[in-house]
Design a protein around this nucleic acid. Structure first.
Length: 591
RNA sequence: GGUCCCGUAGUUCAAUGGAUAGAAUAGGAGUUUCCUAAACUCUAGAUACAAGUUCGAUUCUUGUCGGGACUACCA
């Protein structure tokens, strides 16, 4: 079916042709929503047509306006301000449109685009707990996945777990030296926290050793390399790569602690994965592929045996792919993982990497390498590059203890939700389990919305001293509106579209007009990979509803009016719930 | 040094090259006999600077100033 915009655009196209002899494609006509200070539903900027119309902007706009009122049934009126033609759509159209509106999910493309998109997110190292940076990553990855699904794609959520490398060896070594057999069970510490504790311990002892070496007159660079702990850690990595039984056993044990800890965090955050990849496996595959690349002449070997790729033709550097001792680097693993993923899922149409913008260069290199290796799908790979979360003091550094821990932050938000709810005292009559579940939903909503409303590409600031708000442009604000709507629907009993209603007041019109933009908001969010677009659209929708709610009494005396307003509330509530779900935020029916 | 990103109210965030740059919060003033005041209404306050392209620039180009990231045989 043709959309309203398409109808308008083709009417304008005919009008331009009829009036000024302009030959244009209808899809090249740009219609925008009318700004709220002006009257109208859509606005056409007429400046581009002045050359052909040979008239003033005002006259040109009026001529098109007249034409539309006469020739386009949906257009009821128009007004002209300078070069802007504001077009009003008839109440009749809006009410009919609303009456025949399908369920919210049916307004969107069906899941049969044939595209399967793999979205990678999270992908943590296994040597320390998740922090606020991971929260942004996880929420983005999850939400973008949901948004892509809403746009009719199949989505596979994945991550690659960085379970091998010097970082985990550092934790292992420190645990062996100072751990005295501590386990999550013996100490009651969450697994990832326990392993992280020994990572920090390693760093502390390592720094001590460096200081001692510096006092002997050694340079800092040499001291860092010669410190006994570092040498031991590197030796441990070699033993790991040589599949030493003891080392492997410890590695498995400590990783399993970390996974148990991560699971708890993921579950509370509400994110999940369809398939996991482990670096400890994919790096071997990457190595193979790199060696194949050497044979094909895509890469080259230096005299010391190290393998490199020359990207200077592409304006980049030379990049190391295998060390001289034959061990792999980060890039090696990523090459292997990517190829493996496409082999696992031959129908994959796109690979999306949710990774911070500090790795922009890394992904440029990775995609180029895949292209050079001859993989046609390389150009579909997309780096969903997001900005860092900064603290007022600057960047978070795990080793310096300036991180905001993911579990702590979620706990804090839930506590604050509980505190606020107690204060307002609206949840009386609920069991303590029900209350707790609500606090969880509300606290996490505040956190998730706070993160997701910001354009992913931009870096954002988080001040731990100022707790995240529950009023204003926030998650709980949106949830609250949803809950109020549920109360109305409960009281109304049933929702019917059999009302006889013809005149929208200002608030009703603004709400309906905004509801109309739902599809384009979801579609744009998908094209831009941006939950922020969903968040902002939802916020505006809720603002319009609250304004309507405040001014218009729903259970008035007029039956048709009541039925219409209940129906309008129902559509709004359903839309809010759907949008919140795209953000991974719960939509409680009471709060 | 090289490459890339970013500078919008006191603060945190918006604005496919379009109208009078929107919100929120903090500040000031109001709204509960009425469907949940986690709400609503009013008020005050910003495009770092300088040129250029354009009918029109927060948006595109160049330069200056300021902030950040990357530039490892780390991950």
């Amino acid at each position: 079916m043709e959309s309203l915009e398409q109808k308008l655009a083709s009417a304008i196209e005919k009008g331009l042709n009829h009036l000024f002899n302009i030959d244009l494609e209808a899809n090249s006509i740009l219609l925008q929503g009318t700004k709220k200070d002006f009257i109208g539903d859509f606005t056409l900027v007429v400046f581009p047509y002045l050359r052909a119309s040979k008239m003033s902007p005002e006259k040109t706009a009026e001529a098109i306006g007249e034409y539309l009122v006469a020739n386009c049934a949906q257009v009821s009126n128009y007004n002209v301000v300078k070069g802007f033609l504001n077009i009003s759509i008839s109440n009749e159209f809006w009410i009919t449109w609303l009456k025949n509106l399908p369920k919210v999910a049916d307004r969107l493309p069906k899941t049969n685009s044939g595209n399967t998109i793999m979205v990678e997110y999270s992908s943590p190292n296994t040597n320390k707990p998740l922090h606020l940076g991971h929260i942004r990553n996880n929420l983005l990855g999850y939400s973008v996945s949901e948004i892509l699904k809403a746009n009719g794609h199949r989505v596979l959520k994945t991550q690659v777990i960085n379970d091998k490398g010097i970082h985990i060896c550092k934790s292992m070594l420190a645990w062996l030296k100072y751990g005295e057999g501590e386990t999550p069970n013996s100490s009651g510490l969450k697994g990832d926290k326990l392993v992280g504790k020994y990572y920090v311990k390693f760093d502390k002892e390592y720094k001590k050793e460096i200081l001692e070496l510096l006092e002997t007159g050694m340079s800092e660079e040499v001291a860092k390399a010669k410190a006994p702990l570092m040498i031991e850690a590197q030796e441990m990595l070699r033993q790991w790569e040589a599949k030493d039984t003891e080392t492997l056993k410890l590695w498995e044990t400590m990783n399993s602690w970390v996974y148990q800890g991560f699971d708890v965090t993921y579950q509370r955050m509400g994110v999940d994965f369809d398939q996991l990849y482990y670096e400890s496996f994919t790096y071997l595959y990457g190595k193979e592929k790199v060696l194949e690349g050497v044979e094909k002449g895509v890469f080259y070997k230096k005299e010391d045996g190290s393998v490199w790729v020359d990207l200077t033709e592409n304006g980049l550097d030379e990049k190391l792919l295998l060390r001289s001792d034959g061990t792999s680097v980060y890039m090696t693993q990523d090459i292997g993982t990517a190829i493996l993923r496409v082999e696992d899922h031959p129908s994959l149409s796109q690979l999306i990497y949710t990774v911070g913008n500090e790795q922009d260069y890394h992904f440029k290199v990775l995609f180029l390498i895949l292209e050079k290796l001859g993989y046609k799908w390389a150009n579909t790979c997309y780096h969903l590059s997001y900005g860092m979360v900064d603290l007022p003091s600057g960047k978070m550094k795990s080793r310096e203890g300036t991180v905001v821990d993911a579990d702590d932050l979620m706990e804090e938000m839930v506590d604050k939700a509980a505190e606020t709810a107690e204060l307002l005292g609206k949840l009386d009559g609920l069991s303590s389990e029900e209350k707790q579940a609500l606090y969880e939903q509300i606290g996490l909503a505040a956190l998730k919305y706070f993160i997701l409303k910001v354009d992913p590409r931009k870096r954002m600031l988080f001040d731990p001293k100022e707790s995240i708000d529950f009023n204003g442009n926030t998650g709980p604000f949106i949830q609250y509106t949803h809950a109020r709507i549920q109360a109305i629907l409960g009281r109304a009993g049933e929702v019917s579209n059999a009302f006889d209603y013809s005149e929208l007041n200002e608030k009703e019109w603004a709400l309906v007009r905004h509801l109309y933009d739902f599809e384009s908001a979801v579609s744009e969010a998908g094209k831009e990979y941006s939950p922020a677009i969903i968040a902002n659209y939802t916020y505006d929708l809720v603002k319009h509803y609250n304004s309507f709610y405040q001014t218009c009494s729903i259970f008035g005396t007029d039956d048709n009016e009541r039925d219409f307003r209940v129906y309008l509330s129902s559509v709004t509530g359903e839309t809010i719930a759907y949008l919140l779900q795209l953000l991974g935020v719960a939509a409680p029916s009471r709060m």
